[in-house]
Deep mutational scan, measured.
Amino acid sequence: DPDTRIPVINLEDGTRLVGEDAPKNKDLVEWLKLHPTYTVDM
């Protein structure tokens, strides 16, 4: 689902973004380019 929010984690300080704070699936690739310290939180 393009509107599903994907949890991400900041590799530098461990900050996790989940729920309403997390980027949407459809925006994920662009969002990660803009926030290079974050990666998808598995």
Rank of each mutant, 00 (worst) to 15 (best):
N10S: 13
P7Q: 01
L34D: 12
P36V: 01
V8A: 03
K24R: 09
D27F: 05
I6D: 09
V40C: 10
L11G: 14
P2L: 09
H35D: 03
D21M: 10
L34N: 13
V40G: 06
V40K: 11
P36Y: 02
H35E: 02
K33S: 13
D27C: 09
D3W: 03
G14M: 15
L17N: 06
P2G: 12
W31T: 05
P23S: 01
L11P: 12
V29K: 15
L34T: 14
T37M: 11
V18T: 15
T37K: 12
L28H: 10
G14K: 11
L17D: 05
K24S: 09
L17R: 12
T15F: 09
L17C: 07
V29C: 11
G19D: 11
N25P: 05
K33Y: 10
V40M: 05
G14S: 10
D21P: 05
K33C: 05
N25F: 08
R5L: 00
H35A: 05
D41E: 09
D41H: 06
D27S: 00
A22E: 00
I6P: 01
V18K: 10
T4I: 11
D21Q: 13
R5T: 08
D3V: 06
P23R: 00
W31I: 04
E30H: 08
E20A: 10
L17M: 15
R16M: 15
K26C: 10
T39F: 02
V8I: 04
K24G: 02
P23F: 01
P2I: 12
I6E: 07
V18G: 12
P2F: 03
D21V: 03
D3P: 02
L11W: 08
Y38D: 07
D27V: 04
A22N: 03
L11E: 14
P36I: 01
T15M: 08
R16G: 05
K24Y: 08
K26P: 02
V40P: 09
N10F: 00
H35Q: 02
L32N: 06
L11Y: 14
D41K: 00
L17H: 11
P2T: 15
V8L: 04
L17G: 06
E20Y: 05
G19E: 11
G19I: 02
P2H: 01
Y38T: 06
E20C: 07
P2A: 13
D41N: 06
D21K: 10
P7D: 15
I6N: 05
R5Q: 03
P23G: 01
K33I: 04
T15R: 14
A22D: 02
V18P: 06
G14T: 07
D3C: 01
W31Y: 07
T15H: 11
R16W: 09
P7K: 14
V8N: 02
Y38C: 04
K33G: 09
P36N: 06
L28D: 04
G19K: 08
T15P: 08
P7T: 12
G19Y: 04
L11I: 15
V18E: 14
D1L: 04
P23E: 01
W31H: 02
P23A: 00
T37W: 08
D21T: 08
P2C: 15
N10A: 02
T39G: 07
A22P: 02
L32V: 02
D27P: 00
M42I: 09
D27K: 03
L32T: 06
D3F: 08
H35T: 02
V18M: 14
D3K: 14
I6H: 10
P36W: 01
A22I: 03
K26V: 09
Y38F: 10
I9A: 11
L11V: 15
V29I: 10
L28A: 07
L17W: 03
P36E: 05
D13F: 14
D13V: 05
Y38S: 07
L28N: 03
L11C: 09
D41L: 02
Y38N: 04
L28Y: 03
L11N: 15
D27T: 03
D21Y: 10
T15K: 14
M42F: 08
